[in-house]
Every structure is written in structure tokens, then in C-alpha cells.
């Protein structure tokens, strides 16, 4: 089997179950200076996310096919080969205040657990971010994982400062999403950031904010491209 990494072709002369195994094979047998990142080998550390034929995949859980083209994630500065600089993840988490801001003592139950179960499965692999077409035109957009993380804290009954989360996601946040669903399709954990963003819009309205695109439309922008994609 042959695979291409950053346009260079490599032959894999061994049966491999995952793309990560193929990359380790290359490193240990033909090109030891090839650089890629990995950790857990079981889909939970998020380090090995790459693009395969243009789609985001975790190398440790993708089964490679002959002719696959492997590239680094989009939007993050490339460090070397398939390694990118994801340090901006943390700046985003900080910007959207993705944490429990003010603990409010509450007794939770199994329904409360279910409400945030999927969102808290996030492994921060950034597949959703790399798949998001909005980042291409607005690099300041908070993007899917940061908004899903914020959403998780806003619906946690223990959060005593919901509005603080809502306040920081108005600009370059929830209203900039086009609801194209690419993030949801890219997530290896089955998380649905698009729906979380829709829910955050509803929460924003409940907290006194309004869709700035509707505002634009009423004052003269009624025709033409609706960047918001809403109906």
C-alpha cells in the first residue's frame, strides 16, 4: 500500500490496522525524521488528528486505504510535517470563559448528567475547527469546540454565572456560524457543535441579545447572501 504525506509517497510493506501504525512504520523503517504527533493510540487524547483526502480523521482510528493523501490540520500554523501549533486552543478557551465561573451548590441527577454527557466527551482534537469554513474568512471566529465547551458550562446547573458566558460569545461567536454542519460531521466523538451553537443563540436571545444579521437585514441588507444561513 502507498500513502502520501504532504505530497510525498511512502510504501507501507506491512499489514496495518490504523493510519497511525502506517506512520509509525514509516518513521521506524524508512524516514525516521518524519514528524507527527500521537499519544494514547485509542482515540481519546486528540493528538493525532490530521486530514485524510481533505477530511479530518484521528490517525489512530482511521483505517488507511491505498492512495490516501495525508495533510496537517487547517488554520493552525504548521510546525513540521504533520505537527501543527494548537496553542491557540487555550487562548480560545480563555476568551469564551470555558470553565465553571461561579459554583452554585446544586444536587444533580441522571438527567443533568445526560444533558452534558456528549459535550464533555470532547477530546480537543480540533477536527471541528479545521473543518469549519468560517475560520477561512474570519480567523477570529471562536469556532465549534470552544462554543460547545462554553455551552456545556451554561447548561450545567452548577453554573451561577451563565450570562458571563453568553456575554463573551456575541462577537466572533455564535452569530458568525453558518450552520453548515461540517463540524458535526468531522467530530470523531459524535458531538454536535452546530446544535450547541443553535442552542447558544436561543440562550443569547433569552439573555437580551439579538441576531445581528436580522438587524442588518431590517435596515437595508435584506437581499443577497445570508451569511447566517438561517431560514
Amino acid at each position: 500500500m502507498n500513502i502520501e504525506i504532504n505530497s510525498k509517497s511512502y510504501k507501507i510493506e506491512k499489514a496495518v490496522a490504523t493510519l497511525l501504525e502506517a506512520m509509525i512504520y514509516i518513521k521506524e523503517n524508512t524516514e525516521p525524521t518524519l514528524n507527527f504527533d500521537y499519544g494514547c493510540k485509542s482515540g481519546v487524547c486528540g493528538a493525532c488528528s490530521v486530514r485524510v483526502n481533505g477530511k479530518e480523521k484521528l490517525a489512530c482510528s482511521y483505517t488507511p486505504q491505498d492512495g490516501d493523501k495525508i495533510e496537517p490540520l487547517k488554520y493552525y500554523p504548521q510546525k513540521r510535517d504533520l505537527i501543527v501549533d494548537k496553542s491557540s486552543q487555550k487562548e480560545l478557551l480563555k476568551r469564551v470563559k470555558a470553565r465553571l465561573i461561579s459554583y452554585n451548590e446544586q444536587v444533580l441527577n441522571s438527567q443533568d448528567e445526560a444533558k452534558t454527557q456528549i459535550q464533555s466527551d470532547c477530546i480537543l482534537c480540533s477536527s471541528c475547527y479545521s473543518a469549519c469554513p468560517v475560520i477561512e474568512v474570519n480567523s477570529l471566529f471562536a469556532g465549534p469546540f470552544a462554543l460547545t465547551k462554553t455551552y456545556k458550562y451554561t447548561i450545567d446547573k452548577r453554573e451561577g454565572a451563565v450570562k458571563e458566558h453568553i456575554d463573551v460569545i456575541q462577537s466572533n461567536g455564535v452569530w458568525d456560524c453558518t450552520l453548515c454542519n461540517e463540524c458535526t460531521l468531522a467530530c470523531p466523538q459524535g458531538i454536535d457543535p452546530k446544535t450547541d451553537i443553535v442552542n447558544l443563540r436561543n440562550l443569547s436571545v433569552q439573555n437580551g441579545y439579538m441576531d445581528p444579521n436580522i438587524g442588518n437585514m431590517s435596515f437595508g441588507g435584506g437581499f443577497g447572501f445570508d451569511a447566517n444561513g438561517s431560514f
Binding site: Q106, V107, L108, N109, E113, D156, R158
Partner: peptide, 19 residues
């Protein structure tokens, strides 16, 4: 619990840790 770890929960508890 106070920094927000989303533990699995029981129903009908009377304090946060009991849940």
C-alpha cells in the same frame, strides 16, 4: 465537583456529593 467535573449521577440525592 466544584470546578464542574461532569460525574455520572444518581437520582433522588439530597446533597451534591451524595448524587
Amino acid at each position: 465537583e466544584e470546578i464542574g467535573v461532569p460525574f455520572s449521577r444518581l437520582d433522588g440525592a439530597d446533597t451534591p456529593l451524595k448524587s
